Lab assay of single mutants.
Amino acid sequence: MGTYKLILNGKTLKGETTTEAVDAATAEKVFKQYANDNGVDGEWTYDDATKTFTVTE
């Protein structure tokens, strides 16, 4: 398990959240659902060194 971070750079929603997941693929699924639930759809990037996903609208 590891802690993964999501940085939201949406047009109307900005912020950060974290999740505990077994791997990056699992964290990505959780974060994409979170972003979708909050109406954020954009370009995704992932930094393996910091376990950080970023979505920018």
Results as ranks from 00 to 15, higher is better:
residue 45 T to C: 05
residue 5 K to Y: 09
residue 23 D to S: 12
residue 41 D to R: 07
residue 40 V to F: 13
residue 41 D to N: 11
residue 28 E to S: 08
residue 42 G to L: 03
residue 45 T to A: 14
residue 3 T to Q: 07
residue 37 D to V: 11
residue 28 E to C: 06
residue 18 T to G: 04
residue 4 Y to C: 01
residue 54 T to G: 03
residue 17 T to Y: 15
residue 16 E to H: 09
residue 41 D to C: 05
residue 6 L to Q: 00
residue 30 V to W: 14
residue 13 L to C: 05
residue 5 K to S: 08
residue 53 F to L: 01
residue 11 K to S: 14
residue 53 F to I: 01
residue 28 E to H: 12
residue 8 L to A: 04
residue 27 A to Y: 00
residue 31 F to T: 00
residue 11 K to M: 14
residue 4 Y to H: 02
residue 42 G to I: 01
residue 24 A to Y: 11
residue 5 K to R: 15
residue 5 K to W: 08
residue 39 G to M: 12
residue 46 Y to F: 10
residue 19 T to I: 13
residue 1 M to W: 13
residue 49 A to S: 10
residue 20 E to F: 14
residue 14 K to V: 14
residue 33 Q to F: 05
residue 7 I to D: 03
residue 25 A to L: 12
residue 11 K to F: 09
residue 51 K to E: 04
residue 38 N to R: 15
residue 10 G to Y: 11
residue 46 Y to W: 04
residue 57 E to Y: 06
residue 49 A to C: 05
residue 1 M to V: 11
residue 55 V to D: 01
residue 17 T to M: 12
residue 7 I to Y: 08
residue 56 T to I: 09
residue 38 N to E: 11
residue 27 A to H: 00
residue 41 D to L: 15
residue 37 D to W: 06
residue 11 K to I: 13
residue 34 Y to M: 05
residue 39 G to N: 11
residue 40 V to I: 15
residue 25 A to I: 13
residue 30 V to L: 11
residue 10 G to E: 03
residue 21 A to E: 04
residue 27 A to I: 01
residue 41 D to F: 07
residue 22 V to Y: 12
residue 12 T to K: 09
residue 51 K to I: 02
residue 33 Q to K: 09
residue 16 E to C: 05
residue 45 T to M: 14
residue 14 K to A: 12
residue 46 Y to N: 01
residue 2 G to D: 11
residue 5 K to Q: 05
residue 43 E to G: 06
residue 32 K to Q: 11
residue 49 A to D: 13
residue 26 T to F: 14
residue 29 K to I: 15
residue 26 T to L: 06
residue 27 A to W: 00
residue 38 N to T: 12
residue 49 A to N: 08
residue 42 G to N: 02
residue 48 D to H: 15
residue 31 F to K: 00
residue 8 L to H: 04
residue 47 D to C: 05
residue 8 L to N: 02
residue 8 L to R: 02
residue 50 T to C: 04
residue 46 Y to Q: 01
residue 22 V to N: 13
residue 9 N to I: 13
residue 50 T to L: 07
residue 17 T to D: 04
residue 3 T to G: 06
residue 54 T to S: 06
residue 15 G to A: 13
residue 51 K to M: 09
residue 16 E to N: 03
residue 41 D to G: 07
residue 10 G to N: 04
residue 9 N to D: 12
residue 8 L to T: 05
residue 50 T to E: 09
residue 33 Q to C: 05
residue 1 M to Q: 11
residue 25 A to E: 10
residue 48 D to V: 10
residue 19 T to L: 12
residue 27 A to R: 00
residue 15 G to Y: 13
residue 46 Y to H: 02
residue 28 E to R: 06
residue 7 I to T: 10
residue 13 L to N: 15
residue 40 V to S: 03
residue 10 G to C: 05
residue 21 A to L: 03
residue 18 T to E: 08
residue 54 T to K: 07
residue 40 V to L: 11
residue 13 L to S: 13
residue 41 D to I: 12
residue 25 A to K: 15
residue 32 K to A: 07
residue 25 A to F: 10
residue 41 D to Q: 12
residue 35 A to P: 01
residue 9 N to K: 15
residue 6 L to A: 03
residue 47 D to T: 07
residue 16 E to W: 14
residue 39 G to H: 14
residue 6 L to N: 01
residue 55 V to R: 01
residue 12 T to Q: 10
residue 30 V to G: 04
residue 45 T to V: 10
residue 50 T to F: 06
residue 40 V to T: 04
residue 7 I to F: 07
residue 49 A to Y: 10
residue 26 T to C: 05
residue 48 D to S: 09
residue 56 T to P: 01
residue 41 D to T: 07
residue 28 E to G: 13
residue 54 T to M: 07
residue 27 A to P: 00
residue 48 D to C: 04
residue 23 D to G: 04
residue 45 T to E: 10
residue 39 G to K: 14
residue 14 K to C: 05
residue 19 T to P: 01
residue 38 N to F: 14
residue 32 K to N: 05
residue 53 F to S: 00
residue 35 A to V: 11
residue 34 Y to G: 01
residue 38 N to L: 06
residue 5 K to E: 03
residue 10 G to F: 14
residue 42 G to Y: 03
residue 43 E to T: 12
residue 10 G to W: 07
residue 14 K to I: 08
residue 1 M to N: 11
residue 49 A to G: 07
residue 17 T to F: 14
residue 10 G to D: 03
residue 10 G to I: 13
residue 52 T to N: 02
residue 9 N to R: 12
residue 13 L to Q: 06
residue 43 E to F: 10
residue 51 K to R: 14
residue 4 Y to P: 00
residue 50 T to Q: 10
residue 12 T to C: 05
residue 9 N to A: 09
residue 4 Y to V: 01
residue 2 G to H: 15
residue 11 K to R: 14
residue 15 G to P: 05
residue 14 K to F: 08
residue 24 A to F: 15
residue 57 E to G: 05
residue 42 G to K: 01
residue 19 T to R: 05
residue 38 N to A: 15
residue 6 L to E: 00
residue 18 T to N: 07
residue 11 K to P: 12
residue 52 T to K: 04
residue 34 Y to Q: 03
residue 42 G to P: 01
residue 9 N to G: 04
residue 5 K to V: 13
residue 19 T to N: 04
residue 25 A to S: 12
residue 55 V to E: 01
residue 38 N to C: 04
residue 3 T to C: 06
residue 38 N to G: 04
residue 43 E to H: 08
residue 55 V to Y: 02
residue 5 K to P: 00
residue 47 D to S: 15
residue 53 F to W: 08
residue 13 L to K: 09
residue 43 E to D: 15
residue 4 Y to A: 00
residue 49 A to F: 07
residue 30 V to I: 14
residue 2 G to L: 11
residue 35 A to S: 06
residue 39 G to E: 08
residue 55 V to H: 01
residue 15 G to C: 07
residue 43 E to N: 14
residue 47 D to Q: 07
residue 15 G to F: 10
residue 30 V to Y: 11
residue 53 F to C: 01
residue 22 V to Q: 15
residue 54 T to P: 00
residue 20 E to Q: 12
residue 22 V to F: 15
residue 21 A to W: 02
residue 18 T to Y: 12
residue 57 E to H: 06
residue 34 Y to I: 09
residue 23 D to K: 03
residue 1 M to R: 09
residue 5 K to N: 07
residue 16 E to R: 05
residue 49 A to E: 12
residue 12 T to R: 05
residue 9 N to L: 15
residue 7 I to M: 07
residue 43 E to I: 11
residue 53 F to M: 02
residue 3 T to S: 12
residue 52 T to M: 04
residue 30 V to M: 10
residue 56 T to Y: 10
residue 18 T to M: 10
residue 3 T to Y: 09
residue 19 T to D: 03
residue 41 D to Y: 10
residue 31 F to R: 00
residue 23 D to V: 03
residue 26 T to D: 09
residue 29 K to Y: 12
residue 16 E to L: 04
residue 8 L to F: 13
residue 33 Q to I: 12
residue 31 F to P: 00
